[in-house]
Amino acid sequence: MVDLEKLRFTKTHEWLRVEGSTGYVGITDHAQKEITDVVFVELPKIGKEVVKAGEAAVVESVKAAFSIYAPVSGKVVKANDAVGKDPSLVNKSPYEEGWFFAIEIKDRSEIDSLMTQKDYLEFIKTGAH
């Protein structure tokens, strides 16, 4: 089980899990419920440079498409082929099997600007999304 307290969150509902210099990115449980059934995930190519808050991936439901923004800047080093093949993982397991991609973090100070789980829960409770 992922310890949610160790994750960091964005206002656009991505989470970031830091492992050494690598950051894994996915979307929150709240976000997957809002999106409803995920039918396709367009993953970034490995080696792509992404910037904080820049579009890095796209997730599609039947009736809508949503951009996934990079929580921090850096180079994409891994993409989760499993969600490419079975997008329902994003719904079933948003914090574990449903991760999207991993970034080689460029500037660790960017992590500090992200929300903690407590802040994020507060953020979605106030409906400011």
Binding site: V39, F40, E60, S61, K63, A64, A65
Partner: peptide, 13 residues
């Protein structure tokens, strides 16, 4: 199907 490519969903994208 595959409608998320289309203008009524993706608009300018």
């Amino acid at each position: 199907t595959m409608q998320a490519r289309e203008q009524h969903i993706r608009r300018e994208k």
